[in-house]
């Protein structure tokens, strides 16, 4: 049964990489069930992330957000800061797709704080870029400018010409 769980996860990932997102969802849902049977929280966390990602490409952004939120709870329980940061970043982008820019800003700020704690300059740059765009969408041009300037500074430091 445990091997069946891992295989469902691998199958889900393969469907996903092939662009078969409905099949990916189905396999990852199976993987999630088996992870729950075993009380395997890291596997549960992975399944929620994989499901969130597949729902993004199906255009089902509400479902993606629900799954990312479960992944975030588990990442916090498991004290995995890097995964917590990644999931906040995903939630920020998902709420941008849902045009809920206030929530997007909340999650991008959470991502920014963790990226700074972890000394992840690339992550910090991405957070500033995203925050600039979300503030622009809300018409907060002064704040958008501050984040754009921080993004520029970090891009110069990391040698990211694009």
């Amino acid at each position: 049964r445990a091997a069946q769980g891992r295989t469902c996860g691998n199958l889900g990932n393969t469907h996903y990489l092939l662009g078969n997102f409905r099949s990916a969802v189905s396999s990852h849902q199976q993987r999630l069930l088996i992870a729950k049977e075993f009380g395997d929280r890291p596997a549960e966390r992975r399944a929620y992330c994989n499901l969130g990602n597949a729902y993004i490409f199906l255009g089902e952004f509400d479902k993606a957000a629900e799954h990312y939120k479960r992944a975030l709870q588990l990442a916090r329980q498991l004290k995995d800061r890097a995964v917590e940061a990644q999931t906040c970043y995903s939630l920020g982008n998902t709420y941008t797709l849902l045009q809920d820019y206030e929530r997007a800003i909340d999650y991008h700020l959470k991502h920014l704080i963790i990226a700074q704690d972890l000394n992840d300059r690339i992550g910090e740059g991405r957070a500033c870029w995203s925050l600039g765009n979300a503030h622009t969408a809300l018409g907060n041009h002064d704040q958008a400018m501050q984040f754009a300037e921080r993004h520029l500074e970090i891009s110069k430091e990391t040698g990211d010409r694009s």
Binding site: G9, N13, Y16, A43, S130, N133
Partner: peptide, 26 residues
């Protein structure tokens, strides 16, 4: 439309490009 505008945000597009190849491996 507004929805298309959100999808065209450059930082979101970049995230989606990365996400397309991102899987949580067993």
């Amino acid at each position: 439309s507004k929805r298309m505008h959100a999808i065209q945000v450059d930082s979101v597009q970049r995230w989606m490009e990365d996400l397309r190849h991102m899987t949580e491996v067993e």
